[in-house]
Computed example of a mutant assay.
Amino acid sequence: MTIVRRNALNTTVNPSVNTPETLAEKLIETERMHDVLLLLQNLINSEEATVKLILDCLYDVGSVNIINQKLRLKPINRVIKLIARMSKPVFKTLALNWFKKNCPQLITNWLHTQVAFESIQNVPQEVAVEVAELQPYPIPPTENPYQEIKNLRSQVRLLAWISIIAIAVLAVTAIKLN
């Protein structure tokens, strides 16, 4: 094992004394950021159709990009894109629920960091990172290669059946939705 030292940015703000004036400003800041959170939640609830359209567009672009990136074979690529199109209603429902629950707080936090104007000081700080040497994966010797082949064939059959069932379920879902 090796220990590597890296410099990290220390994001500290000038320490200030907690005076009553500073505490009052912090309280007002907290209340106003809570107001921003409530306004964002209200905006998302009132503009739900717009949020759905945004998520729809993001899903179209993101699913095609990730499929193209991960799967290079054209026939498999096309099949997976078809499956991705069929699973879009499920994604929209889950994504809308996630968006309503998490995004107002995430956006509020991001906006707060934008208006905080905190100065970032470049103070080198040593961080110890432990780096382990990789050992190659040991390949166990097989006593009976025919048994191993038999096991692999049974696993392939099992995966084929699981794939067939999954595609059938997606087809039935698509037919019922249409």
Rank of each mutant, 00 (worst) to 15 (best):
E133Q: 11
K88M: 03
I139K: 08
K88R: 14
I54R: 07
A132G: 07
V156L: 10
L152M: 10
V131D: 09
Q147D: 13
K150I: 06
W98P: 01
L158V: 05
L94E: 15
V172D: 02
W98C: 06
N68P: 01
L53M: 14
V64W: 01
A49K: 10
T113N: 06
I80S: 02
V127P: 05
N144Y: 04
E130H: 06
P145E: 13
I80W: 02
E130T: 12
K52V: 08
S63R: 03
E130S: 09
T50Y: 06
A49R: 11
I83F: 02
Q121I: 04
T108R: 13
Q69W: 05
A132H: 08
R78F: 02
T108G: 12
Q155T: 07
F91W: 05
K92F: 04
K101M: 04
N144G: 04
F117T: 04
L111D: 03
Y59A: 04
K70A: 14
L106C: 11
K81T: 09
I107N: 06
L73T: 14
T93Q: 14
I162N: 12
I120S: 04
Y137P: 04
I67A: 10
L158R: 09
M86Y: 03
L53A: 15
M86P: 01
E130R: 07
I76S: 12
I139P: 03
D56K: 08
V123P: 01
L96H: 06
E143L: 13
E126V: 08
V131H: 06
W110T: 13
W110L: 09
T173N: 07
N109Y: 07
I120D: 05
Y146H: 09
L111C: 08
N65S: 04
L96T: 15
E118Y: 00
I54F: 08
S163Y: 11
L73P: 02
T142G: 07
A128I: 11
K88D: 01
V51T: 14
V127N: 07
L71E: 15
I164R: 14
A160T: 12
L158A: 09
P124H: 00
I139V: 12
R72Y: 06
E148D: 10
Y146A: 14
V123N: 00
V129S: 09
N68R: 11
I120E: 08
S163C: 15
V64E: 12
R72T: 15
C103S: 09
T50H: 08
Q155S: 10
Q105D: 15
D60S: 12
